[in-house]
Design a binder for these strands. Structure first.
Lengths: 114, 114
DNA sequence: TTTTCATATGAACAACTATTCATATGTTTA
DNA sequence: TAAACATATGAATAGTTGTTCATATGAAAA
């Protein structure tokens, strides 16, 4: 089955690892989860929400972005279950809805500042 | 400056958060870091390397992928400084090169299995 | 040295994604 | 009720990304 002759990798080991591989669907879900963090706009939105609950318009103001662009990205954050929201009058207030978010962001910072 | 009347967000607060916002370049770097995790192929490669150092060909065999596709993705992992490699004869052995990798993957799993 | 093998890489293409623009929805105020 | 406001969303577009195919590089074997 292996096409090469990497001398330290025997067939048994390869077959074992292949068998132990995580289910494809789980891997896709995990990749989708990280995709949420893989955009600078969404990271900025998360950064703002780490400081305070905030309405869409104020997020747009702080980030110098259009209301539409922010709303589209909040939709992605919602789909990823990273934010929750509450409606109050005409406004919608978003806030973080996951304990892992800060941890993951911090791990990321920790890495890039090697 | 704020275009809306979200009553609990005053101008001072908005300006303060705006001023405290992380530098754009850092945010881009952070997004780029998470982009590395935002692909199922790369997550699979990382999963394999979490178990053992491995040559390119064996990774391709385990994941049922072309050598070229794996090599291209290893390049991305290398650029993100997530893997290191050593050459031995004709083969190149890759392994994980960052303590945060397992932590971040685990955090991800922790989230998606809510 | 020539061939074979393991890996890397450039170009091309298809699929995906973020933003913009226009508009819809739903709430409050006049 | 009509107008104004805050947010959401669909369509279109530009930019990005992952894979394939062909080929290059570099090392070992014949």
């Amino acid at each position: 089955m292996p096409k090469c002759n990497c001398e330290n990798n025997n067939l048994d080991m390869i077959n074992q690892i292949k068998k132990d591989m995580v289910n494809d669907e789980v891997v896709f879900d995990l990749a989708d989860f990280f995709k949420v963090f893989a955009d600078s706009t969404r990271i900025k939105i998360i950064s703002v929400l780490l400081k305070s609950e905030m309405c869409v318009c104020d997020i747009a103001t702080i980030l110098d972005m259009s209301q539409s662009a922010v709303s589209h990205q909040l939709r992605v954050l919602r789909a990823g279950r990273l934010v929750k929201y509450r409606k109050e009058g005409k406004s919608v207030y978003y806030s973080l809805d996951d304990d892992h978010v800060k941890t993951i962001i911090d791990q990321g910072y920790s890495h890039i500042s090697h």
